[in-house]
Computed example of a mutant assay.
Amino acid sequence: MATTELAPRTRGDARAAGAAMLLGSALSNQVGGATAALAFPVLGPPGVVAVRQWVAAVVLLAVGRPRLRTFTARQWWPVLALAAVFATMNLSLYTAVDRIGLGLAVTLEFLGPLSIALAGSRRRTDLACAVAAAVAVGALMRPRPSTDYLGMGLALVAASCWACYILLNRTVGRRLPGAAGSAAAAGVSGLLYVPIGLFAMLHHPPTSGALAAALTAGLLSSALPFLVDLVALRRVPTQFFGAFMSVNPVMAALVGLVLLDQRLDAVAWAAIGVIVAANTVAVLRRAG
């Protein structure tokens, strides 16, 4: 009898712990992005991304321990595609952050998973979410004297990469066990950034402070969130995980304000709220 009574409480405690982990993961990710921005003036976005990719490769290879020699051609092609997506997504996002700020860049990037959540649905609720998100994006990209369309375009490239990342991860997960596929993709992406990183550092010699900021960004934005999310997924349902990802644009805007003094106007905050709400509704409706 005691075991039966404690089971719901235990599940509730596990979900509460999982929610706390996801919140911490989002905070870590966005603080990492803000820390990376501090190194942009010295290393530039390509140099910072290179360091981030190297950190991610070391951590994921240690966790996933992929047996690369056993991979078949059918397993390698999605891994290589995922590596290319890794490389493109982080470079386009960090360049966008450098141009338009953390909050706006992450919000536009978040359209990637939102589009996956809404893709193929014909339900009225999901169509309403799509329309609301489109209006919010229009508000964020409205013409102003300070509008940086290249930065916004790069954030949308990152959004497309995130959508591809989700789809490729499903394929990799079906063809390779555990984190082996993601680890191999991170390793390949890290290798791709060796010449890019060396070129960037030769032209922009790193200071100890900039290098420390880039390494910290790699740990906070890649290594720590990956490990925390792995543990959190054992405690919360997948749909809850998907809905909770919506906290990232809000967290990015708040971190950008506090750490980088990047201020958004009322329209931008309202648009972020609409996009977050649209994703939450779409994910929970699909789960239902």
Rank of each mutant, 00 (worst) to 15 (best):
A117H: 02
A130Y: 02
I166N: 06
G24T: 03
G12R: 09
V276S: 08
A56L: 14
P46C: 15
T3Q: 15
P205W: 14
R144A: 11
F71V: 10
S160V: 11
R9H: 14
R124S: 13
V49Q: 02
S221R: 06
V49Y: 04
A7R: 05
I100E: 00
G44C: 13
L230H: 13
P195C: 09
N29C: 10
T280W: 08
A200D: 01
L38D: 03
T10S: 11
P206H: 02
F199T: 15
S246A: 14
A268S: 11
G153H: 04
R9M: 14
A270V: 08
R99W: 05
A87I: 07
M152H: 00
P45C: 06
A158G: 07
V31L: 14
A282P: 06
W54D: 01
T125M: 12
A180M: 05
M1V: 11
G187T: 09
P206D: 10
V131G: 09
T3R: 14
L224M: 13
G44L: 01
A117Y: 10
P143L: 11
T216Q: 06
L219T: 07
W269H: 03
V85G: 01
V131I: 10
W269R: 07
I275F: 10
A184C: 11
P66H: 05
W54P: 00
D229P: 01
V247W: 03
A243F: 01
R285P: 05
I100H: 00
D148T: 01
V79D: 04
